[in-house]
């Protein structure tokens, strides 16, 4: 863990998302899919954004890059600051300058995220040349250099190969090379290892760690897998139904969760019990944005729910407020002070 992760505010964050609200147009009007999300990342720090599928993680990261499809999406409030620059409300041209240069992104699907019609090296060189406005040969050299850095053997030759000639793991390495080629301040990684199998997953995480340390990149690591978060993140933000329900440094989150949803996610991690892997799941399903339960959004599935959990608290008109418990831990649970939750075993 790096020194920066001890507490927020010890160094000015590189990326600071505050009270972000995103809505999607549906048949029954606007559905709020990201509801007041806040988090920040510092230099060389990795912050995990965790939650089940549909909790709004991808929408949050696309909003940072201004890549939400509009229609149907609209950002209705909040702030996204990159250093001193407010990204919300920037014009498209200004955003295009920042994307890929200062904020880069990698995605879940390595098989389809690279353009099948162009050689891998050309795709990296094109991005570098677009932002650095250098010569073709300089850009090509950079592409080869980056492919080498991400561990692609014989990079000069492989740069001329097409994506379909790469394996899934190699493609994700190439995606990382493409994302990192302009030395971005922030890397948004949206489930970068979810589609990969175990050993490849571990290699990609190793690679991301070494890239972060070499380039001092701030990483926002989006995943539904708390196990991966524990592997690479300094802090984590747990999302449920469009809201942040817990924020904590990774050890606190892991061993002393302060929200029943985090506890449930930890309980659902695969356990090695006497050699057999037991896969547990959280009972019930996450609510859809159009039909959110009143009060605590997690209460229909919560093992600790009490009748009062279904009523909004006075401090938050439409649910339960996120409350800071210390200067680095926050939880959105009305019973947080009375509960003794189980951490990872």
């Amino acid at each position: 863990m790096t020194a920066m992760s001890v507490a927020p505010g010890t160094e000015a964050p590189v990326l600071e998302v505050t009270d972000l609200r995103v809505q999607f147009a549906t048949d029954r009007g606007w559905a709020t899919v990201v509801d007041g999300v806040s988090f920040s990342v510092g230099r060389a720090e990795t912050v995990g954004v965790v939650g089940e599928s549909g909790s709004g993680k991808t929408v949050t990261s696309l909003a940072v890059l201004g890549l939400l499809p509009s229609p149907p999406a609209r950002v209705v409030g909040g702030s996204i600051r990159l250093g001193d620059t407010e990204l919300l409300g920037l014009r498209r041209r200004e955003l295009e300058e920042i994307r890929g240069d200062e904020v880069a992104m990698i995605f879940q699907e390595p098989m389809t995220s690279l353009n099948p019609a162009f050689p891998v090296g050309d795709q990296i060189a094109e991005v570098f040349r677009r932002h650095r406005r250098c010569s073709r040969s300089r850009a090509r050299a950079r592409a080869v250099e980056m492919l080498g850095k991400v561990g692609i053997p014989d990079a000069a030759r492989r740069a001329r190969a097409y994506p379909h000639e790469f394996s899934g793991g190699m493609r994700q390495r190439a995606m990382i090379a493409l994302a990192m080629c302009c030395d971005p301040r922030v890397l948004l990684a949206d489930e970068p290892t979810t589609a990969l199998d175990g050993t490849i997953q571990a290699q990609i995480l190793d690679l991301m760690r070494s890239m972060r340390d070499e380039f001092d990149t701030a990483i926002v690591f989006v995943t539904h897998d708390l196990g991966v978060v524990a592997d690479i993140c300094d802090r984590a933000v747990v999302m449920y139904a469009g809201q942040v329900v817990e924020k904590a440094p990774i050890d606190d989150l892991y061993y002393h969760p302060r929200h029943p949803y985090t506890e449930a996610l930890l309980g659902a991690l695969p356990q090695l019990d006497g050699g057999t892997e037991v896969l547990a799941t959280i009972p019930g399903t996450a609510p859809t944005p159009g039909a959110l339960p009143a009060g605590c959004r997690f209460h229909p599935r919560c093992a600790h729910a009490r009748p009062e959990c279904a009523h909004p608290t006075e401090s938050a008109a439409d649910g339960v407020a996120l409350r800071w418990l210390s200067d680095s831990v926050a939880s959105r649970c009305v019973r947080v002070d009375e509960l003794r939750l189980r951490g990872a075993r």
Binding site: L65, E97, I98, R99, G100, N115, E126, M175, A179
Partner: peptide, 10 residues
């Protein structure tokens, strides 16, 4: 891959 190209600022 179109999203990738946009995300890279092309």
């Amino acid at each position: 891959y179109i999203r990738t190209a946009r995300a890279a600022g092309l």
